[in-house]
Amino acid sequence: MVCQVEEQRCSIAGRSESACETALLRPKYNRFLLTAKCLYCINKQLMSLSGMKPIQILPRPLPETLPFYQSPAACGFTSPAADYLQDTLSLDQLLIRHPAATFFARAQGRSMEGAGIFDGDILIIDRSLTPGDGDVILALLDGELIVKRLVYCHGKPELHSENPDYPAIKLDSEEGLNVWGVVTEVIHHLR
C-alpha cells in the first residue's frame, strides 16, 4: 500500500512533534484520513506494522516544540507545581561527563564478571581520563581491544581479570601499556 499526500500540514490535538508519528504508533487515531494526491508517501513498513488507516492532515498552525509542562490558559488556579518545574532526568547527564570523548562498546566474555561486567553488557568508556591503578580499562593488546583491570605491581603495569579462571597479563613496562580508554560505567540488562 502506498499513500501519497500533497497537502501535509499536520496537527493532532495541538501536538507538534509530528502528528503522523503519533498516529502511526497509536491506532486510536485511526479516524484521521490521509488526503492523497501525488506527492508524499508514508513508509510501507510503518503502515503495515501499525495496521493503521491513513491519517488526515489538517491545516493548522503549530507550536515549534512542545513545552515540558503546558499550563492551561488563565482560568481557575494555576498549578501549584508550575514554579517547581525542572528538566526531566537525563541518563546522559548522569553517566557522561565528557561527551566528545565518550564511546560505547559491548562486552563479550566472562573474565570480568567479578567487576560486574557480564557478557553482552554495554560499557561506557571515557577516553579523556588518565588511567590509574585499579581502573577498569579498555586496552589495546596485540591489535585487539580487551577489558581488564589495570593494576600496578612493583611499578609495573598488569592487566587483571576478575575471574579466577583467567591469569593476569604482565606487561614489561609502561610503554607496553596501550590504553584506549577508561571504562566508567556498565549497563547491565536485567531482562
Binding site: Q8, R9, S18, L39, Y40, N43, L46
Partner: peptide, 26 residues
C-alpha cells in the same frame, strides 16, 4: 515549510527516508 518540518521530524525520529516522496521509490 511546515510540511517540511513534519517531514524532517519524522525522518529524524525513525531514520532518514522513512517518509519520502513517492518519486524516490521503494
Amino acid at each position: 515549510t511546515r510540511m517540511m518540518t513534519v517531514l524532517d521530524a519524522i525522518n529524524q525520529r525513525f531514520g532518514s527516508q522513512t517518509l519520502r516522496p513517492a518519486s524516490v521509490g521503494f
